[in-house]
Amino acid sequence: MHWLYLGIAVVFEITVAISAGKAQGFTRLTWTTVTLISGGIATYFLSLALLTFDVGVGYAIWTSVAGVGIVILGAVLFGQRLDWRKLLGIVAVIAGVVGLQLSGAV
Rank of each mutant, 00 (worst) to 15 (best):
M1Q: 08
M1W: 04
W3T: 14
W3E: 14
W3G: 06
Y5E: 10
L6P: 00
G7E: 01
I8A: 02
A9T: 07
A9K: 05
V10P: 07
V11G: 04
F12H: 10
E13W: 00
T15D: 00
T15I: 15
V16G: 00
I18D: 06
I18N: 07
G21E: 14
G21R: 15
G21L: 13
A23V: 15
A23M: 05
G25W: 02
R28G: 05
L29Y: 05
L29D: 03
T30R: 14
W31S: 08
T32N: 04
T33K: 03
V34Q: 01
T35W: 06
I37F: 06
I37M: 03
S38G: 10
S38E: 03
G40P: 08
G40C: 13
A42D: 11
T43L: 14
T43Y: 04
T43C: 09
T43Q: 09
Y44E: 12
Y44K: 11
F45C: 11
F45E: 14
F45G: 12
L46V: 10
L46Y: 08
S47H: 11
L48K: 14
L48Q: 11
L48F: 02
L48M: 04
L50F: 07
L51E: 15
L51R: 12
L51P: 05
L51Y: 05
F53R: 07
D54H: 04
D54W: 03
V55S: 09
G56T: 14
V57S: 00
G58E: 07
Y59S: 12
I61P: 01
W62P: 00
T63K: 07
S64T: 12
V65R: 00
A66C: 02
G67D: 09
G67V: 11
V68H: 06
V68S: 10
G69M: 12
I70P: 04
V71Y: 03
V71F: 08
I72N: 01
L73D: 08
L73C: 05
G74C: 13
A75R: 02
F78D: 11
G79W: 07
G79K: 06
Q80I: 12
R81F: 03
D83V: 06
K86F: 05
L87T: 00
L87N: 03
L88W: 01
L88T: 14
G89E: 12
I90H: 02
A92L: 15
A92I: 15
I94L: 14
V97L: 09
V97Y: 03
G99Y: 06
G99F: 02
Q101H: 13
L102Y: 04
S103P: 07
G104I: 01
